[in-house]
């Protein structure tokens, strides 16, 4: 029964939405049924899957590129005090700049297209991931590093057998948050730089004749996929090799 409560909440909200639209006869918001029909229409035209895949494709590239670079970079900074002192101020200044502020520069560098969008997603995930990895290294218990060296581990062995497993729980949380940000940004990036994807769908639907049912359909899809991505990342947090980091003793 408890598991049904969240669904019940959503169902009630949708019903209230429907009632409000029907009773006021407003043209400011399409009804939920119109949004569902719009999704059906997208599916019929073969655009539904195409746009979803396009958006996921850009996120995947930008996000994985960021993982690939930010994690080693963050670990390096975390273990190398001087490098951190040199680079950290720069990171802290760049970090609060919204990736959207980079749009003009992205277009200048990479043109209007996929590459710009991927670059923006990369930026959006790179800084938080770097900071997470760096912080996680700082949080490693000195005792564990000492024990590792005591058992005769070389530097590379220490990295693989102590540092990486020790930071993994925090890293997984950081990865989940960064993916959330990446998904936020892909939609925004597609509104400007490309001609496919869910973000594009929303802008295009408005420009091409006030199809607000398609706009809301796009919003619903974005939200739903965001939830699915988050749920998938949460699955990672239940794995044995990270679960120890969340257990309260």
């Amino acid at each position: 029964m408890r598991r049904l409560v969240p669904f019940l909440g959503v169902a009630l909200a949708v019903f209230a939405w429907h009632l409000a639209v029907v009773m006021t006869g407003t043209r400011l918001v399409p009804s939920p049924w119109a949004a569902v029909r719009a999704i059906g229409e997208l599916a019929q035209k073969g655009l539904l899957l195409k746009y979803i895949v396009a958006s996921l494709f850009r996120v995947t590239w930008g996000y994985f590129l960021a993982l690939l670079l930010a994690i080693p970079f963050g670990i390096a900074l975390g273990t190398w005090r001087r490098g951190e002192l040199a680079v950290n101020p720069l990171i802290q200044v760049l970090r609060p700049i919204s990736p959207l502020a980079w749009i003009p520069i992205a277009i200048l560098w990479f043109g209007v297209g996929d590459l710009s969008a991927v670059f923006l997603i990369f930026l959006a995930s790179f800084f938080p991931l770097t900071v997470t990895a760096m912080q996680a290294v700082h949080n490693i218990e000195t005792i564990h590093l000492s024990a590792g060296t005591n058992f005769g581990l070389s530097r590379p062995q220490l990295l693989v057998r102590v540092i990486l497993p020790a930071i993994l729980p925090q890293l997984v949380v950081g990865m989940r948050l960064a993916l959330g940000v990446a998904w936020l940004v892909v939609v925004a990036a597609e509104m400007i730089a490309v001609n496919s994807g869910l973000g594009f769908l929303i802008v295009d639907a408005r420009n091409a004749g006030d199809r607000y049912d398609l706009v809301v359909a796009g919003m619903i899809l974005i939200g739903a996929i965001g939830v699915v991505l988050d749920l998938l990342m949460r699955r990672l947090e239940t794995l044995d090799f990270v679960r120890w980091g969340y257990a309260s003793e």
Binding site: E141, I143, A147, V162, P165, F241, W244, G245
Partner: peptide
């Protein structure tokens, strides 16, 4: 070196 029991690797 044996630390207090916090020295075991929790992972």
């Amino acid at each position: 070196f044996v630390f207090q029991e916090r020295g075991v690797f929790p992972w």
